[in-house]
Simulated scan of single mutants.
Amino acid sequence: MQTLFKIMPFLFGIGFIAPLIAQTMTYWGWEPPLGLSPIGLGLLIGGPWGLYATLRGRWV
C-alpha cells in the first residue's frame, strides 16, 4: 500500500490529466500534432508530468 501512495502522482498524470487533455482537445475541435490521437498527446504530456511530480514530490 505504501508503494501505491508513492507513485500516486504518476497514476494521476496518466489516469486523470491525460484523459482530461484528450477530452478538452476533442471538445474544442483541436487536432493533435504529428498525427497523434488526442489520448496519445495527453499521455505524452500527463505521463512525464506525473513522473516529474513523483520524483520531485510536487507538481510545479
Rank of each mutant, 00 (worst) to 15 (best):
M8T: 11
E31K: 15
A22W: 02
L4K: 03
M1R: 08
W28A: 07
G50Y: 04
I7Q: 02
G42A: 06
E31M: 14
P33R: 12
F5D: 06
Q23A: 12
L36G: 10
A18L: 05
L55A: 07
T3H: 08
L11V: 09
Q2D: 10
L4F: 11
A53L: 00
T24Q: 11
R58V: 02
I14D: 11
Q23F: 15
F10V: 04
L20W: 14
L41P: 02
L55K: 07
L36S: 11
G47A: 14
L51W: 06
L41C: 05
K6H: 05
R58H: 05
G57N: 01
T24K: 06
F10D: 03
R56D: 01
F16N: 01
L44D: 10
F16E: 02
P33Q: 13
Y27C: 00
P33K: 13
S37G: 13
W49N: 05
P38R: 14
G50F: 04
G29I: 09
M1H: 07
Q23W: 14
M1T: 04
L43P: 05
L55W: 10
L55T: 09
L41T: 08
P32S: 12
I14Y: 11
G13D: 08
Q23R: 09
L55G: 02
G46I: 08
G47L: 06
L55N: 05
T26Y: 10
F16I: 13
P32A: 11
W28R: 07
L43H: 08
R58I: 00
A53I: 01
M8H: 02
S37I: 04
R58C: 00
L11M: 12
A18M: 06
L20M: 14
L51G: 04
G35Y: 10
L44M: 15
K6A: 10
I45C: 11
V60C: 00
G47M: 04
G40H: 07
P38A: 15
P38D: 14
L44R: 09
L20Y: 14
Y52V: 01
T24I: 12
G40Q: 12
G50V: 01
Y27H: 09
P33A: 13
F12E: 05
P19M: 11
L36Y: 15
I17A: 09
P33E: 11
